[in-house]
Design a protein around this nucleic acid. Structure first.
Lengths: 225, 225
DNA sequence: CGGTATCCCCCGCGATACTG
DNA sequence: CAGTATCGCGGGGGATACCG
């Protein structure tokens, strides 16, 4: 992006931060993604070319360092102190967006992205010991985006787009918008459960604790205006 | 700007806020500008066409309302609650920029912008009663940007690019980078005064109180890393 | 998996001129 | 002063194919 002809700190920061996709990439990095394709899963609509460019720009700006992976394939992307401090910016923008941004439109409803966002925040300490397999079915999604599985272990949650080969412990059936708005904190989980717009099929303990291990968006508690 | 295909609040807010010039326009509005050409003075490199477009987008997003001026010429642009809450975003980005953004480069050094930025923060309560006229001379600027005058009254500070017709009470002589970096808090005012890189000529009271009525950038206290 | 390399299109934006 | 109208271009970025 061009410059603004000002030495105002907001203008200088804008040169980097207001480039297309940039804040979403930083969000992914701050959420814990370190590898190229992990970042892509959080920003699925960006092209590989452009993602690489943006990562390079972040490195140039001192917000990121590249480290070769020990297995030799690709790099690991690690935020510097400068990059980690962007969390404040993300927080401010996210809060504002939660309160004031436009409503969710059908084009925003990417089921895969929703699952990816959820997997980051699942509280596995609220689940039984060992492995727990969740199946998510989006009843209104096209075939290829209809089913997802979350394989949850104590320190790791994996997202699968094919049956993981283990039995499902709990199945969640809903339409995309419902789960999206619940996750955003726009609708109440309770309401959607009792109205059966979200249906749970499986182990009773897991069902009961659903509201506990499903942690919503970090902005969910902020009420939309 | 296009959309990002996500219903994340950061993505939705980015649609509006990361457009070119947008944050700088919001900064001006939040600093108190209400009229078209006042905003332009704070964002001098934007074209009239694009500024109008951006203001319309802000209005559409609910951050701004237009009110016809009572004299009939043009509109008054007033932030809504949503627009005022963007101050948080500006604060976060400005803080980050102050700490981590690139150094000031020669192309950023717009003398007129610096004077405009200063005029917003001058503390007239630290000045004598009545009118005080400051002359600022940028010793290294081209003729057309060499002299500026600030006509300070209790509730109003005017910026002039021609002699205002009143006697100058205090003259400030310096190069642009020095005053810019002092204003940003990157250099110490004291040091620059005692080394004569900033020279003051005029009334002794006014000279003595210079560090008091010249209020620096709101980010000046944050130290660059 | 983690990128490059290319091609090409579109539209965002700057510049300029004009208006009430 | 506060915009509108028009033109033209540059390059940002999407799409696709390819590579180690």
């Amino acid at each position: 992006m061009s410059t603004f002809g000002q030495f105002c700190p907001i203008a200088l920061a804008s040169e980097i931060l207001t480039q297309k996709w940039m804040l979403l990439i930083v969000r992914e990095l701050n959420a814990g993604s370190k590898r190229f394709n992990d970042i892509r899963r959080g920003v699925p609509r960006i092209s590989a070319t452009l993602l690489k460019q943006r990562l390079d720009q972040l490195e140039l700006a001192g917000a990121l360092i590249k480290k070769p992976m020990n297995n030799g394939s690709g790099d690991e992307y690690l935020l510097t102190e400068a990059g980690r401090e962007l969390k404040t910016v993300l927080g401010a923008i996210g809060e504002w967006g939660q309160r004031w941004a436009r409503d969710i439109s059908p084009e925003d409803l990417d089921p895969g992205w929703l699952v990816w966002a959820m997997h980051r925040r699942i509280d596995t300490s609220q689940m039984p010991e060992g492995r727990t397999v969740l199946e998510i079915e989006f009843t209104d999604a096209p075939k290829s985006q209809r089913f997802f599985w979350l394989v949850c272990q104590k320190d790791n949650v994996d997202v699968c787009i094919k049956p993981p080969g283990y039995d499902t412990d709990l199945s969640v059936k809903t339409d995309v918008l419902t789960l999206a708005e619940v996750w955003r904190g726009i609708r109440e989980l309770k309401t959607e459960l009792s109205s059966d717009r979200i249906r749970l099929v499986g182990e009773n303990d897991l069902k009961k604790l659903f509201p506990d291990w499903l942690q919503l968006s970090i902005f969910a508690k902020i009420k939309k205006k």
